[in-house]
Structures are given as C-alpha cells and as structure tokens.
Amino acid sequence: MSEDLSIFALISGASLLVQIVMGILLIASVVSWVMIFQRWFALNAQQRSMDAFEDEFWSGVDLRQLYTEVNASAGELRGYEHVFVAGFKEFNRLSEQSSADPGAILQGSQRAMRVALNREEEKMERHIPFLATVGSTSPYIGLFGTVWGIMNSFRSLANMSQATLATVAPGISEALVATAMGLFAAIPAVIGYNRFAARVEVLTKRLETFSDELTGILARAAHSAPTSSGGGGAATGITKRRSS
C-alpha cells in the first residue's frame, strides 16, 4: 500500500518509451529555457543600445562625426547603428560620384538601409521559432507518453482477476508525469514566444521609423547638396529636424 511514489521513483519505474519521451521533453525544456534567457538578454541589450543611439542621434551631433564615431567603436553594430551606418555609407559613396542624381542617391541609401533592417530583424528573431515549436508540440509529446503509459497499465490490468484502484493508480500517475513535463516545457516556451515576438515587432517598428526619418534627413541633404559645394561636402551641412 505504501508504495514509493516520489517523482523520481515514478520516472525510473516508467517504461522505456515513456522514459524516452520524458528525456526528449527534458531536453526541450532545458534548450527552450536557454533560448528564453538568451533572447531576453539579447533583446534587452538591443533595446538599451537603441535607446542610447537615439539619444545621441537627436542630441544635435553632426552626422559625419557620428558616422566616424560609430565606425571607430569596437564590437558589432546593432539596431540603429547598423541601419544608420549602412544608409549613410551608401549615401556618401553615391554622392561622391558627381554624375548621380539625388533620386538615385536616395534610392541606393534606402535600399542599403532596408537590407540592414532585414538583417537586424533576422538577428532579433533568431531562436524565437524554436520556442514556438516547443510550445506547440511538447504537450502532444507528453500526451503521447501518457497515453502509452496508461495503455500499458490497463493492458496489465486485463490479466488480473481483482482490479482495484491501487493496481492502476501507480501506472497512471507514472504516465501522467510525461504530460506534466510536456506542460512544464510548453508553458514558458509559449509565454516566451509571445513576449519576444511582440518585443521584436516593436523594435522592428522603431527601426523602420528610424530608417524613414534618416531617409528624410538624407533627402534634404541630397537635394540641397548639388546647388552648394557638391561632392564630398554634401553631408556636412545636414541639419536634423524631426518631421513629426
């Protein structure tokens, strides 16, 4: 009557297939937690760097100076920096060719910014599909383990003349551990997926807005540059004003 029903006894007493299912779920849970923490730190860092760059960008610093500053700083470019560097580099390169007209210059820099933005989005969204997969499949995997375990415990019940609750209960509770583990893996993964997907969307929106703002600034510079000195000095007199 007083059987050892601790979780670990249940796990070690389960059949091989159920144990494999439990192992898969444990791995899925560990990996999804790794991804959750990794995404959390990465998105926090992204947001922090974006906030810092936004402050610096709108503080009235000269764009060329900002460009050299950002380029000089060690480490990978992220968020606004990436978009800004890509767009500004393309703008400079095109405006150095005197033949290029302002429209072509702007289109080129816009394209470069779009590429950088897509790269950023891709970087932010990394691992998030994995969380979605774990969140949607691990309950089913757990359920499979449970169904298998209950199936076996009922099959062994068929051979008994006297069926009491005590003969089925250990098998069922053993099998239910698999479902519990599936849910344990799935719930944080789903929460993490929803939370991070929303955050990535917000950050992407901010990047898009920024690239539009930068396009506006560069357009003003491109259209005013040919009338003044032209060429290399095009961006020196760029004035920033928020359009909104």
């Binding site: 601790s6 937690w33 923490f37 990794q38 990465a42």
Partner: peptide
C-alpha cells in the same frame, strides 16, 4: 552569448527538481 543562459536554464531545472524532491519528502 550562451554560457549565462545555459547556466540559468540548468539552475532553474535543478531547483525545480530539488523542490519536487523536498515536496515529496
């Protein structure tokens, strides 16, 4: 980029296992 998340994930699972063990006891 992954050493800290891995450490934290393992810590979470270990603490859960410990909690279950203690709870059963």
């Amino acid at each position: 980029h992954y050493s800290l998340p891995v450490l934290l994930a393992f810590a979470i699972h270990a603490s859960l296992a410990l909690f279950l063990w203690q709870g059963m006891a």
